[in-house]
Design a protein around this nucleic acid. Structure first.
Lengths: 224, 224
DNA sequence: CCTTTGTGGTTTGTATACAATAGAAGTTTC
DNA sequence: GAAACTTCTATTGTATACAAACCACAAAGG
């Protein structure tokens, strides 16, 4: 891949995910170019990709804004993700290799270690979780499915809110992953799909609960 | 939208859909720029979008090739489309407006007129069909769903093969659309979803049958 | 004969300059 | 004082020039 435009893509994406660029905010190409230390050309390139990934959206007059997702939009995205990842799990159950199964086990073990401590390491949790799901999509061996999923898995607000997940929720993710592993080991595609769909669905509610807590905090801070 | 880059997008897309640019063929930016009568900048812009839409793919070394889909890839795409459009139909059944319902009826009437003649007008059929499905996706009112579907609905080979559809197949599409209309009128989301999924699924087999005929023709021509 | 390495030409990536267009603000007129 | 028009500014779109990467082919060495 190209160096400058990829750096720009990563950098802008991280700024959006971390909340440095606020949802709804307008962003100018020149401005971003300065921040990334490159010219407008690679920035425009990066913006096109971010637009396809629904991280930004353009007004009728082509001005660029950070995507602003409502709770409804998020439920919508989680529903689609549940369908698609359920399908991925079903395919994966029929195709997964011994190596991929081992990799999955390793990731879930890492995930458990990240949260099985007095202070859970949420960043590590998210990374192991991401890789766990990525391996399944890879095992599903469908280029189109992979392309579609890459566009709805990561959502800015979800990242920021994840810090508020409680220990029980994190452990439930681990347990659901374990169940998924069993389903894969048995090559049971129906089981795998239903566990996955439920897993994503529950994740949405965990998010929604944590998000409400987040809102309360924000309101309290604003009141000070 | 911008003039030159959109023209380039449309033009290149049409060249791919029509088969003028053959699957697997390498395409150079400079070359495309000449054809479209613009500079490389808007062409690169268009290529980024076409890449997101899976019309082209890039090699590891960033060279551009026309996407080459195997029959397996196509079945895969049709399966995903069935899932997503089924979901769209389900949502649409609960939300569709009277006006949208009328528009759907009009499109399907136009579709019938296009094929109810001695020599079916397949191009008109495809256009009415496209708009019919587009209205449903619009009625589903999910930005994400729309974004995902826009990336798998149109496939180069399908267009070219459509000319070989027989009259009975075309009429079945019309009848299935009519059934969908009834389901929408009754606001029956479960019915709508199952009719839609079956509709897409059958379309795949119509394609596969016609495609085999296509292959036979090609082989016969090569033998001359 | 096979492998490797260099070189020429082709293709893509980036920067910059300039053109076009949309928004904003200020002025004029009723 | 409000609405419409004009001008100015900010932002995006396009062209072009140059730099870097890559591929293919040929030549040399083992």
């Amino acid at each position: 891949m190209s160096r400058a435009s990829d750096r720009a893509y990563e950098q802008i994406r991280n700024m959006i995910l971390s909340g440095l660029l606020e949802p709804g905010a307008q962003i100018g190409e020149e401005h971003l170019a300065e921040i990334c230390g490159v010219s407008r050309t690679p920035v425009r390139d990066a913006l096109r990709r971010l637009e396809a990934d629904l991280f930004i959206k353009k007004s009728e007059s082509q001005r660029t804004f950070v995507a602003d997702w409502s709770l409804e939009d998020l439920e919508d995205a989680f529903t689609l993700r549940g369908m698609l990842e359920g399908h991925a799990a079903s395919r994966a159950a029929r195709r997964i290799s011994a190596k991929q199964l081992n990799d999955l086990r390793a990731e879930n073990e890492g995930l458990r270690l990240a949260i099985d401590r007095t202070q859970p390491d949420v960043t590590a949790f998210l990374e192991h979780n991401r890789r766990f799901h990525a391996i399944i999509v890879e095992a599903a061996a469908s280029e189109k499915l992979e392309s579609l999923l890459s566009r709805i898995v990561e959502q800015p607000v979800v990242w920021r809110t994840a810090q508020h997940y409680d220990h029980e929720n994190l452990m439930r993710s681990w347990r659901e992953h374990e169940e998924l592993l069993t389903a894969f080991a048995r090559r049971d595609d129906v089981w795998a799909a239903s566990v996955m769909t439920g897993h994503i669905r529950r994740a949405f509610h965990s998010y929604a609960d944590a998000h409400r807590g987040d809102l309360v905090t924000a309101i309290a801070e604003a009141a000070e």
